[in-house]
Amino acid sequence: MNRPSLHVLWMYPDVLHLHGDRGNVMALRHVAGLMGIDAEIRRVDSLQEAPDFAWADLLYFGSGELKRMPVVVSALIAQKEALDRYVAGNGMIVASGSSAAILAQWTKKTDNAKFSGLKLLDITCKQCENVYGDDLWFELPDGGQAIGCQIRVIDIRLGREQAPLGRVLYGYGNNGQDGSEGARSGNLIACNAQGPLLVKNPRLAAAWIRDALAAHGVTDVAAPDEADFVWEDASFALIRKFIEDKMAAAGAH
């Protein structure tokens, strides 16, 4: 029997180059391997290149400087027809951190200038005056939890019908106010936790891999062995304790 394969398009890694987000690409390959899946990563380096969306199961956008987002959006609008087909086929797109602006309706900058996103998620973004960095602990609709870190440069507001990706247990999330974290519509995902989120939360990686493959008719996928995640679980426990101590200290004040 042939092993299933996962095709990942890593979108503009040199342009969206912040926060060690390549760790997430490494994790997709690693966790897929643990699930008996051959992951193939292809880079889309040039902004002029026509990405092979028909080949892909998952598009990954790492975090980038907010200044770069309009350029990336323009590059993708030039490929709109193929991208629309990919989205209509429930292809998965994951955008980390500030790259939520790529999927958003629009983003307003501190100088009040606005730029449009691809309007794939019903979210709007607003550049913040100050940077804020903190741990981010959130719960997913299936009851699973994830821990990462967030460097916030934009606030995100969800549209009325837009579902969040999860619910903040600790940290800033979309805007520090409504308790929402990220956004998800079908297989289109924006997530504020950056860097090696999927390294640290391999079950989340496994779930996204399953969803990406299911959209393309591959459903017979093995679950990874829980014993493979001993260090990840130990990390989760340590950092959860660290966060709980912070929460207790804040409560004491």
Binding site: H19, G20, D21, R22, G23, M26, G133, D134, D135, C149, I151, Q194, G195, P196, V199, I239, F242, K246
Partner: peptide
């Protein structure tokens, strides 16, 4: 706040 960022190791 103090936090547990290790992003830079992945750069």
């Amino acid at each position: 706040p103090h936090y547990t960022n290790t992003f830079y190791a992945y750069d």
